[in-house]
Nucleic acid binder design. Structure first.
Length: 578
DNA sequence: GCCGTTTTCGGCCCGACTGTTTTCAGTCG
């Protein structure tokens, strides 16, 4: 049973929680939390690296002890410390820690005084009015915890970036009508273009304290607000009807840059920068950068970075994943932009499960400033989508040829999204694929194969002389379906050897490749194509989220296949065939 | 538990809000 980084990270997180409940040294707790994060963010599997090279590379915040624990987990699947801690603690007690409003101190009190160590016990104790009797607890706390525990049954979910975007735009439009308001920005993980966001962090700049009050009132009065969780003079939190939490922060103009930086995060990036400040005898908070009492920066984000002699770092990179070092060396990537895209290589029409015609799709793509669009229907195996057989594909090819003859400054490419069958063969014969401009291979079935078989299947498909692009390489659906178990590094390396590009499918439910795997592809020199997988003319909007993810993966214009001119693209497509 | 231009011990990011407190602890982001 292979041990993944996520497994190691989970064990470290559990250790952190259990230690916290024992009132251990908080810095020791933090060390485990930090290790969980660092391990979870690695682009290669630590266990594999260990097996191959016998040692781990130096990772930040992981010293002798944690390194030994990683080796232990890689070898045994668990860790003696965790087992020991778990044995001492009441089963299930860590679930209480995940409840908003409960931290280690209160969980300990609940356990010690009331013998409460699970959500259901908490609900019972709260209903009996036993919580309010505890020191530091009151009637309000009891009610809040009861509500939170009951809500926990409907599991706390994150929102897909595109969905959060819809809510964010409406709320921003509502707030922008406030008198005296200067600027509204959605910061947080939304600004960093993370694939999902847990809440919206909205930052408002105002010209006066009166305006600040007005913004707070307008926020609380927003029609979508279901419940105000907290409201002070500069800060408020609310839950929208959708269940999305929104945190609002109002700041004066001179602090706008420091506040924007602070609330954009990530937390890890901010901590790294604050440590640098500390080393220079400075202090960073959301109001600015300070030397003693004196404020030396903070009106813009540039000024904050400037204090450290760093250039401005794009939000998508702010994960403490080497971006600060790169900035220091003048080696930040020049990230790809939406306007760099010259075409889109994955789209469907009414012929299968799309909603628009060839003409309508071509027109819409051209209206977005694109010069080419590949039509890539499903193949016959995908019966629910009415996938194409060779005869229907041939008819579509003829229709595209006819349409291209009429189009002046735009080109439709003839393609297919052909299914990769369970044995690694393709769903259409070579004779059907040969006349096409490009062939995208995709897995749409048998998701549960073992890692070895799944990897073998995809590698085999990549041996086809016709395959140009591997679609949505992990197969995950965000918050809905796990990626299939596959050795991505082997796939990336095979792509390199075979001249195949990997798709970053920009559909909001996919965003697949992930940011981490984009960076892996870049490191290995494999081009990524950012495709909409459009099923209707409106779906080209999704390219912006694909670009956001590509930027999180450090991709530059030259790393993205469909930033190339049509001529250069054709050269790439021809090269893959031998 | 980690780490080092304060270097092998003694630090470790910072502030707002709430509720229960009469001055602050706990939690959160």
């Amino acid at each position: 049973m292979p041990v993944h980084n996520a497994d190691i990270a989970r064990i470290f997180e559990e250790i952190a929680e259990l230690l916290e409940l024992e009132d251990a040294n908080p810095f020791r707790v933090r060390a485990y939390r930090n290790a969980a994060r660092v391990v979870g963010e690695q682009r290669f599997e630590l266990a594999e690296r260990l097996a191959k090279e016998g040692a781990l590379p130096k990772l930040p915040g992981i010293g002798e002890d944690l390194s030994a624990k990683i080796q232990e987990i890689a070898a045994t699947g668990t860790c003696a410390l965790r087992e020991r801690l778990a044995k001492r603690a009441p089963a299930g007690i860590t679930e209480l820690l995940h409840l908003p409003g409960l931290g280690p101190k209160r969980v300990r009190a609940l356990n010690r005084e009331l013998d409460v160590h699970s959500l259901s016990q908490l609900v019972r104790a709260a209903k009996d009015g036993r919580l309010r009797a505890l020191a530091g607890f009151g009637a309000k706390t009891e009610k809040r915890l009861l509500d939170a525990a009951l809500a926990q049954l409907g599991t706390t979910r994150r929102f897909k970036l595109a969905v959060a975007g819809e809510y964010a735009r409406s709320l921003v439009a509502h707030l922008e009508k406030t008198r005296g308001l200067q600027n509204v920005v959605v910061a947080g993980s939304y600004r960093r273009m993370k694939e999902t966001v847990g809440d919206l962090d909205i930052l408002v700049t105002v010209s006066s304290p009166t305006a600040a009050q007005a913004v707070m009132r307008r926020f609380a009065g927003y029609g979508e607000v279901k419940k105000v969780l907290a409201q002070g003079e500069t800060r408020a939190s609310a839950v929208l009807a959708s269940g999305l939490q929104v945190d609002l922060r109002v700041v004066p103009r001179e602090s706008a840059g420091a506040a924007l930086h602070y609330f954009t995060g990530s937390k890890a990036h901010n901590i790294a920068l604050r440590r640098m400040a500390q080393a220079k005898g400075l202090k960073i908070n959301e109001y600015g950068v300070f030397r003693g009492e004196r404020r030396i920066a903070g009106d813009t984000e540039e000024s904050v970075y400037g204090v450290f002699g760093l250039p401005w770092i794009p939000p998508e990179l702010r994960e403490d994943q080497g971006e600060i070092e790169a900035a220091g060396q003048g080696a930040l990537p020049k990230l790809v932009r939406l306007e760099d895209l010259k075409g889109d290589l994955h789209a469907h029409t009414k012929a299968t499960d799309g909603r628009n015609t060839l003409e309508e799709m071509a027109e819409a793509a051209q209206a977005r400033g694109l010069a080419y669009l590949a039509i890539t229907e499903h193949s016959r195996r995908v019966t629910v989508a009415h996938g194409l057989d060779p005869a229907r594909l041939a008819r579509q090819v003829a229709a595209i040829d006819a349409l291209n003859a009429r189009l002046k400054t735009f080109t439709l490419l003839k393609g297919i999204e052909v299914d990769i069958l369970e044995d690694g063969s393709l769903d259409l014969p070579d004779a059907a694929l040969a006349p096409l401009d490009l062939v995208i291979g995709a897995v749409h079935s048998s998701f549960k194969l073992s890692r070895a078989r799944q990897t073998e299947r995809i590698l085999a498909a990549m041996d086809s002389p016709f395959l140009s692009i591997l679609a949505h390489p992990s197969g995950r659906l965000i918050e809905a379906r796990e990626p299939y178990d596959v050795d991505m590094l082997s796939i990336v390396r095979k792509a390199k050897a075979r001249g195949i590009a990997l798709e970053l499918n920009a559909h909001p439910e996919r965003l697949d490749l992930s940011d981490v795997h984009c960076r892996m592809a870049k490191d290995e020199g494999v081009p990524v194509c950012v495709d909409s997988d459009a099923h209707s003319v409106g779906d080209f909007d999704n390219l912006r989220y694909g670009i956001g993810q590509a930027r999180r993966g450090w991709l530059e214009k030259d790393d993205v296949l469909n930033t190339r001119s049509l001529a250069a693209l054709r050269k790439f497509l021809a090269r893959g065939r031998f």
